[in-house]
Design a protein around this nucleic acid. Sequence first.
DNA 1: ACCTGAACACCGTTCAAGT
DNA 2: ACCTGAACACCGTTCAAGT
Lengths: 193, 193
Amino acid sequence: MARRDEVLDAALELLDEVGLDALTVRRLAAKLGVQPGALYRHYPSKAALLDSMVDRIAAGVPEAEAGLAWDVHARWIARAVRAAMLARRDGARLIATFDRPGPAGVASWRGFTGALAVAGLPPEAAAAAADTVFAYVNGFTIEEQARLDQRARADRDAQFEAGLAIIVGGIKAVLEDPATATGTRAGPGRPRS
Amino acid sequence: MARRDEVLDAALELLDEVGLDALTVRRLAAKLGVQPGALYRHYPSKAALLDSMVDRIAAGVPEAEAGLAWDVHARWIARAVRAAMLARRDGARLIATFDRPGPAGVASWRGFTGALAVAGLPPEAAAAAADTVFAYVNGFTIEEQARLDQRARADRDAQFEAGLAIIVGGIKAVLEDPATATGTRAGPGRPRS
DNA sequence: ACCTGAACACCGTTCAAGT
DNA sequence: ACCTGAACACCGTTCAAGT
């Protein structure tokens, strides 16, 4: 069981060194000083190894404090998920491509929808709000990490926060007026202000 | 020039048939009744072929009507981009992995930020709002298309619309009160209702 | 328990040569 | 202009055999 973890550690190191596209069973074996076939004693396939890597990256998101206000919770979880993805080269693409339900991800989701429920959102609306936040974080971070013309980290942070503010504001609007949640259903011809 | 397009058409067909992971130069050559090396007369590399496929998928998003209200424009462009991605197997993952600036994508972005500017949003806020919508659409659709336990299309549509309503609501809040855009800057200790 | 050696069926890509 | 034939340097995976 110890060797299995050494293989996983080496794989994560190799990911940072060469990127996801060059992360090869054979290169990993060379890094470990071993024949390629030897790795199949520890993982049944490369896909299984990648799944374990995803779990490890997802585990980088700590549990939220209990009793956080929903909007503080929202910003906190969004930043934590983005940070965990950015911590590894191609982390966002890796997670997007090999998304399992994943116990760590499920826990984050439950914690956040719980906070939204406490704030008064019905379960369905809470789920929609949480899914929206996570879709935004994933979409933003995948694109951010894929871009070759890397802008400064501060600029990317500011852009991330701007989008986050929009979404938190949108959830607040739903909390204050649940009719908003159905989108245009209120009638397309009605003037708005 | 005609043969180049035939290769591209065959590649898009093959994508629908076998999926992105099995989309292979050799399989494509077989489908065309040709030796693998022959394809390099038309595309300098597999990556170049994939880029062309992305362009074609992105071209599935038509130009927006002029003079649309910003919120109608927002919902329209979000739905159009999602629809274009869903029209091809693994379309979202393909686009996310091989995102070029892309003339079609740039046109969509300009059209939408233009509508937001007309509504009174300063350029920086309009860019942030547009980026947020596109990040959401990409994140949502990648996950949607990757899931193996496919729910009914109607359910997925409803969930997409719910997230869209949140984001449109958030942009509306920024339009009505630009101070919202800076997120928590107003002071974390302040009670909210 | 862990690894070697050697093979199998694949990849993307190059390039002289043919028509 | 387009394709063949043949090769090159890689892939992931399997499995008997060794220690």
